[in-house]
Amino acid sequence: MGRRTAEPAARLSWPVAVLAVTALAFLVLPIVGLIARAPWGELPELLVRAPVLEALVLSFGTALGSTAICLVFGVPLATLLARAGGWRALPRRLLRAAVTVPLVLPPVVGGIALLLLLGRRGLVGAPLEAAFGVTVPFTTGAVVIAQVFVALPFLVFAVEGALRSANRRTELAAATLGASRWQVFRFVTLPLVAPGVAAGAVLCFTRALGEFGATITFAGSLPGVTRTLPIASYLAMQSDPDEAVALALLLLAVSLVVLLSLRDRWVPGVRA
């Protein structure tokens, strides 16, 4: 208010600065604790153990798979959400709430819900088994489903933000000039929102990689099939804390590399 100049480094008032630094410390200190506690000397040996590599491969494979699925279904859902701006309040809010639910639901509850839907006695799972003999829980597919459930909103909201900030007039101009709907989407909309889609996909991937509660509840925990890195880390805590810390470091390193690769494109339209 009243500040005319937009200096890049405007001074913060001191209470804000103190609280901000406290908040930052709260986020960073646990990570410092993890790093300080790490058995650095044995780390190489701990990380090449067969169960660790198995969990790493499984985690990467499933997280990539669920990110791909989120892209295929999430971008259209984000488009729907962006267009819902013109809807009436009630359906618009219901749609937004439905997409937000997995963000605020405890993942374990999400896992139970998935079990009650797709489990052997579930709403869809029971007919599925009766008709095709297919059971979903305790399979690698179940890991991917759990990850999609928790990670999809991250992609949808990132892409929706990009779509909203993209200038609709450019699309209209292209349409006026005779471009088909597909051409408008392919040559105008998509390039405009591509950074948002990329950022959403990266956040989606890291969330899928870290998924624990829904996975252990819905998919279980079997080495090589459903035991992902976070689950392996949790179980290692029971018997071999050093291995648990090593696994946690591995997850942390992967997440940091991925997030740093985002540079400043955390949220479309907001660049530091």
């Binding site: 305790f138 252990i216 998919a219 279980g220 925990s221 079997l222 080495p223 459903t226 035991r227 689950i231 949790y234 179980l235 029971q238």
Partner: peptide
């Protein structure tokens, strides 16, 4: 020699 589908915590 059991063939488990999940090993719980």
């Amino acid at each position: 020699k059991p063939v488990p589908d999940t090993l719980e915590s």
